[in-house]
Design a protein around this nucleic acid. Structure first.
Lengths: 197, 197
DNA sequence: CCTACCGATCGGTAGG
DNA sequence: CCTACCGATCGGTAGG
């Protein structure tokens, strides 16, 4: 509306529509005609802005993972305890999911449909994300804050499973803010279900 | 091979092939030609045994959820503590996932592609599954075994998220048996990450 | 369970 | 970004 308002480029609109549809219907369940329809142009016209359906997916997955990585990695360098880092990382993750649950569904599930080269890139980025949590977990154990009997690999996968499942149920219309949900999940995972003496 | 060996009916073979393909490529990413190919018949011949692609999916989802329900619900009636119930339920869940991770992926993700009627059935069954864990959680809190400050709804979703994510990483070829993985996950979730004094 | 086929839809392109 | 179209593939069927 104002003079400084950026007019969204067609390519960004296409990416945005594709993100929502890939999240809702899956990559293979979405046709270029669906996307064109959502954007408001004819199917063939899409190719004036993008090269192929797979490049669309690849760019969405790549950008999506990057969003998670940039939210979490700075936390590793902060001068706070491992428990504070873990709590902050969990909250950051939920915040990124809440920003756009559909994007998260694309990142978590649709990478399977990438071609080999792009899939390798995505897998590598996801490993890097997982390793951030592994690092925090190991720091916590080394500092005597975390249970030394933890099976780190399984603990990290348990944690990431809980986090990666959140786009399945989190709703911005729910009673709890993303920040609050993150807080509660962090507390639940760190304290455990059992009562403490 | 023996006289008592049941010869698999074509319909069961089709269901089995469909389960693997729907798990690996998704429902919309799998064609009836893919399935026919895996079974070893021509595409049109499938329809001598099944009514439609969606009926195939619906039957797989229905049976799959039932597998989880029958594994968990008897535990609710056992005369054991809530912590023992929760541990048993977690192990039962991992065992069912490990039996067939692809079936679990179908159950957890492909139900979205069911038509309204079948989807409603699936959602109802999944709610029933979730409520089994809610019941255990509430029993544990009432018995003073579980942390009374738990946010039950989020705790259950955190737990189920961790469990539902296991088909993404569990491998029968890994070093740990399903039972052992279940044990470790149960311990991790019940004790929490933090060291206990 | 095969042969032979249906209309619809797919990802993508040439030319303007 | 539209017009007009390509060959390939889709779920499914009739008749045997």
């Amino acid at each position: 509306m104002s003079e400084t308002t950026e007019i969204s480029k067609p390519r960004d609109i296409i990416l945005d529509v594709a993100m929502h549809l890939f999240g809702k219907q899956g990559y293979t369940g979405t046709s270029m005609r669906d996307i064109a329809n959502g954007v408001g142009m004819l199917p063939g016209s899409l190719y004036a802005h993008i090269q192929s359906k797979e490049v669309l997916l690849s760019e969405l997955v790549e950008r999506g993972i990057a969003r998670f990585l940039t939210a979490i990695e700075p936390i590793l360098d902060q001068e706070i305890s491992a428990s504070e880092k873990l709590r902050a990382a969990i909250k950051a993750h939920i915040t990124v999911v809440a920003e756009n649950p559909e994007r998260s569904l694309v990142v978590f599930h649709q990478w399977r449909f990438l071609g080999k080269k792009n899939m390798d890139l995505a897998v590598k980025a996801r490993r890097r994300y997982e390793s951030a949590f592994t690092t925090i977990m190991e720091q916590g154990i080394a500092a005597g804050l975390f249970n030394p009997k933890l099976h780190v690999k399984i603990a990290v996968r348990t944690l990431l499973g809980a986090l990666n499942w959140t786009p399945e149920w989190y709703s911005a219309e729910g009673p709890l803010s993303a920040d609050k949900v993150g807080d509660i999940m962090a507390e639940t995972l760190m304290q455990g279900f059992l009562a403490r003496a």
